[in-house]
Structure formats: structure tokens, C-alpha cells
Design a protein around this nucleic acid. Structure first.
Lengths: 118, 118
DNA sequence: ACAAGTACTTACCCTAAAGTATGTATTATG
DNA sequence: CATAATACATACTTTAGGGTAAGTACTTGT
């Protein structure tokens, strides 16, 4: 949305770390407060835009589409629109997105085990 | 370091998502450009502060200790200091940190496979 | 005529986190 | 007595990303 300053140290370092470190690479794709939650919703199956909104009541519309767009660019989510009025748009995981689910499950399992001993 | 404004919407949402979503919970612990890279260095074994600095030349000292502190607070890394001059401090993974390595490997594998078809 | 429903878009503000630069304590050594 | 070595600390600046609020397009139903 807002243009990023490509020559800022910050952005350069981001690129750099994503280049070296496969974990950073993944973190960049899953980064953002809402992305994991959106993906989680879509694991259950394709959902309409409005269904996602209802499923995640505390997200704003701006954040929702912004993240959906990034997820599309990163080839994790596929958007399908039907040209009707009112519009009908569904989002679903791509194969790469589906492949990510075991990774997310591994993260979730670690979280559960780690949370217990606190 | 810098105090966070606890009642900002942003911070509230962060807490909220980390509460619901185990993946967000993990993302918060691994968030920050350098944390995965620091953890990766420590997978190989304990390292001194100065060794970490040399291993990650582009990181600044501020970022390095800041992340090391957060990793300690999150119980992923253990700091051991010997009272000598010049100081001798080593960092190593805790059990929780060690448990995280298969998760990070899963992320890395996904990254490798996903990067190929781009 | 206008409200309702869907899927966005856009202009603006605020802040957490990253980066820059410099300083500190302690002791051994030339 | 000044420098080196190690492991930090701290004051200040910048920016990416998140949040707020309001608007848009198109058609069907009343």
C-alpha cells in the first residue's frame, strides 16, 4: 500500500536476512498480526470476504484486504471473483498455502507444550 | 527497553492474537529480523557474545543484546557470565529453545520447496 | 428516491521496533 | 598513563506497519 523506502537500512536488512535465513523468509510471509489467523480460517476451507470478516470480528477491513493481497502476492492464497452484484469473492489456500499447514501445526504444538511450563 | 503503551489498540491486538492463535504466539517469540538468525547460530552450540557478533556481521550491538534479552525473557536462551575481566559471557539454547529447532527446520524445508517454484 | 448489501479504496495518524552514534566499567599490559 | 579487550547501556532518529474514519461502485428491493 504505502510505498516502502527501498534504500532504508531497515528494508535492506529485511531482504538480506530473508535471503540467508529460510526461517526469516517464512517469517516475512507469515508476518503481520493477522496473517496466521487468516490462514487458519482458510485451512478449514474456502471462505468469502464477508465470512472472513465475521470470523475475525476484531480485524478492520483495511487490514483484512491488505493482508489478503499480500498473501496473494506471496502465492499462499487464491482469490476467485464472480461478476455479480452484489459481488461474490472467495479466498482459498493455494498448494503452497496447503503445504504450510503442517508447519503451522508444528508451531502450534510447540506453543502448547511451551506454554504449559510457564 | 522502550516502554510500550499498553492500552494502544495495536498492543491489545497483539496480545489478543497471541492469546487465541498459537501460531501468532510463536511468531511473537521469533519476531524481529534477527531472532531466527541468532537462534540458528546457537543451534550449532553455545557461543560467546563476541562470537555471535562476528557470526552476524551486519547486526548492530544494540539489536544483538536487545534480542538476546528478549530471547532470555522468553526462556529460549540462557546467559552464563563468568566474573572475569575482560568479561566472558556465553549464550546457549534452553530446552524450550532446543525444542524449537524441529519447528524451524520445518519452516526451512517449506521455504526451500516454495522458493524453487518461483 | 433511497437504503441495503458486498467488496473494496483512500487519506490521514500513531507507535513499536529498527537503526545511529556514542559512552561506560573493569583490569592487564606496554 | 593510556590503550586494548569485552559486554554491554543509552539518548536520539527514522520508518514500516498497524489503526481510524470515511468514501466508492453497482444493482436489487420497497
Amino acid at each position: 500500500m504505502t510505498k516502502i523506502k527501498e534504500n532504508s537500512t531497515r528494508n535492506e536488512n529485511k531482504q538480506l536476512t530473508a535471503g540467508w535465513c529460510p526461517v526469516s523468509y517464512v517469517m516475512n510471509k507469515l508476518g503481520g498480526y493477522w496473517k496466521p489467523i487468516i490462514l487458519f480460517q482458510l485451512i478449514e476451507g474456502p471462505k468469502r470476504y464477508s465470512e472472513l470478516r465475521k470470523a475475525i470480528p476484531t480485524i478492520t477491513e483495511k487490514m483484512l484486504i491488505q493482508h489478503l493481497k499480500q498473501l496473494q502476492e506471496d502465492n499462499l492464497v487464491l482469490r476467485t471473483a464472480t461478476a455479480v452484484v452484489p459481488p461474490h469473492v472467495t479466498y482459498k489456500l493455494t498448494q503452497a498455502g496447503i503445504n504450510l499447514t503442517p508447519v503451522m501445526e508444528a508451531m502450534a504444538n510447540w506453543a502448547i507444550n511451551n506454554r504449559e511450563n510457564n
